Computed example of a mutant assay.
Amino acid sequence: MSMYRIENQGFDYQELDLEIDDIIDQFPDYMSTLYIHDFSKNNLALTPYWKPVATGFSEINGNENLLPDITYWIGGTLVLSPVAYRYLGELIRPHGEFLPVHIDGQTYYIFNCLETINSLTGVTPLSKPIVKNQNEISENLYCNAHFKSAIEEFDLKGISFCH
Rank of each mutant, 00 (worst) to 15 (best):
R5Q: 15
E15V: 08
E19W: 04
E19Q: 09
D25M: 05
F27L: 08
F27I: 09
D29Q: 12
D29N: 08
M31L: 15
Y35C: 11
Y35Q: 10
F39H: 09
K41I: 09
N42V: 07
L44D: 00
A45T: 06
T47R: 02
Y49M: 07
W50S: 09
P52Y: 00
P52R: 00
A54E: 14
S58K: 15
S58A: 12
N63G: 00
E64A: 15
N65Y: 12
L66G: 01
L66R: 14
L67H: 01
P68E: 02
I70F: 03
Y72T: 10
L80Q: 01
R86F: 08
G89W: 05
R93L: 12
R93W: 06
P94G: 11
P94H: 05
G96F: 03
G96L: 05
E97P: 05
F98W: 08
P100F: 10
V101I: 12
D104T: 03
Q106V: 03
T107M: 12
F111L: 07
F111I: 12
N112V: 06
E115T: 09
I117V: 15
S119H: 09
L120I: 14
V123H: 01
T124K: 09
P125H: 04
P125Y: 10
P129A: 03
V131A: 09
V131W: 00
K132H: 10
N133P: 01
Q134W: 00
E136H: 04
E136W: 02
I137T: 11
S138E: 13
S138Q: 08
N140L: 03
L141P: 05
Y142T: 02
C143V: 14
K148M: 15
A150R: 10
I151S: 02
I151Q: 01
E152F: 06
E153A: 15
F154M: 13
D155F: 09
L156M: 13
K157D: 03
G158D: 06
I159Y: 02
H163D: 14
